[in-house]
């Protein structure tokens, strides 16, 4: 077993035993981190692997969240119903929006995703009868599977953990599969991929729909977690903060967005208990990362590991050199 596998197992064990280690407050914090990590992981498929920077990912989060909220209130809080309906709604929404967005790239892609997400925001904001308008929807019943009620935070935590592991595992398979390699190829050089015979537009759309669908799943879970949803979770600042999670964590890596989500949620919780200007502090940290560690927490970690092993190697080399010198001296 390699070091990476060991670290992975240790992390999973820690997550499994969290309810026994942490108080309820911190368990809820971990739950929130896992849900937002799913959201960041979904965006990372688009931003980190396909190279399409979206500033409208909250749209699909919102579609999933409101779908879930409305169904749970009006029809049934059955977990599978709300989850799969949210997934389906987000897939449909992202397919429609994606068809337009993947036709453009770079700056225009960013602006177009932003415009579409703001359209969804204003729909949510205006349709008071369906979405509760600016008041949002509250009192959303907690999810049920059969007679099992997930209002218990420990049960709910395990439900989220299971989904998180499934999604993380599934996505890491996808990004290493031949399909995922095509996405990486598009990020690196779309022109070349076309001349290799790839219908790149279709692949970009697929990435957009995967990202959107899982974004919807995250939204659905978020609604169940908070039993409340408001238009601010569909606003473009939400798209911005998930993008920050991906970038601070390390885009184009699997673990990066998870670390980014954890970092931002923890920071937000700690800093906001001291000052109301926490947004400014996150902004400053983001700027520092972009300027000094553009590869995020993952890049920073690698850098530290490298310099550590390098200094070890260097001392080994200098040791050899002094030996060689010594040998020369003897020969002379």
């Amino acid at each position: 077993m390699n070091k990476k596998g060991f670290a992975l197992i240790a992390a999973v064990m820690l997550l499994i035993f969290s309810p026994f280690i942490f108080s309820l407050f911190y368990l809820n914090l971990v739950t929130e981190i896992l849900i937002l990590a799913i959201f960041a992981l979904s965006l990372n498929i688009l931003v980190g692997y396909t190279g399409l920077v979206s500033l409208g990912h909250a749209a699909f989060f919102g579609v999933g969240a409101y779908m879930s909220a409305i169904l749970a209130r009006e029809i049934s809080p059955n977990f599978f119903l709300t989850l799969f309906a949210s997934l389906a709604a987000a897939i449909i929404a992202s397919a429609i929006i994606g068809i337009f967005c993947v036709k453009v790239s770079g700056f225009y892609f960013l602006m177009l995703t932003l415009a579409f997400s703001q359209m969804i925001y204003s729909f949510v904001h205006q349709s008071t009868t369906i979405t509760g308008g600016s008041n949002g929807l509250s009192g959303i019943p907690s999810p049920l599977i059969g007679s099992l009620d997930f209002s218990n935070p420990v049960y709910f935590y395990y439900l989220i953990l299971l989904l998180f592991i499934l999604i993380y595992g599934g996505l890491s398979l996808i990004v290493h599969s031949p399909f995922g390699q095509v996405l990486i190829g598009i990020r690196e050089n779309e022109t070349r991929l076309k001349s290799m015979g790839y219908h790149t537009t279709l692949y970009k759309l697929a990435a957009f729909v995967i990202a959107g669908g899982l974004g919807g799943v995250a939204g659905s879970l978020y609604t169940s977690f908070n039993s409340f949803i408001s238009p601010s979770d569909v606003y473009w600042t939400m798209s911005g903060s998930v993008l920050i999670m991906v970038l601070i964590g390390g885009s184009g890596t699997m673990i990066g967005p998870v670390l980014g989500a954890a970092f931002i949620v923890i920071l937000e919780t700690i800093v906001s208990s001291y000052t109301t200007m926490w947004m400014m502090i996150i902004g400053i940290i983001f700027i520092l990362f972009v300027v000094f560690f553009p590869k995020g927490i993952v890049g920073l970690g690698k850098l530290l590991l490298q310099s550590f092993s390098k200094s070890n190697k260097l001392s080994a080399i200098s040791g050899k050199k002094s030996n060689a010198l010594y040998n020369n001296d003897v020969k002379n």
Partner: peptide
């Protein structure tokens, strides 16, 4: 024609 395999690592 292996480009559309999703759930199998390419190694």
């Amino acid at each position: 024609h292996l480009q559309n395999v999703w759930f199998k690592k390419r190694n």
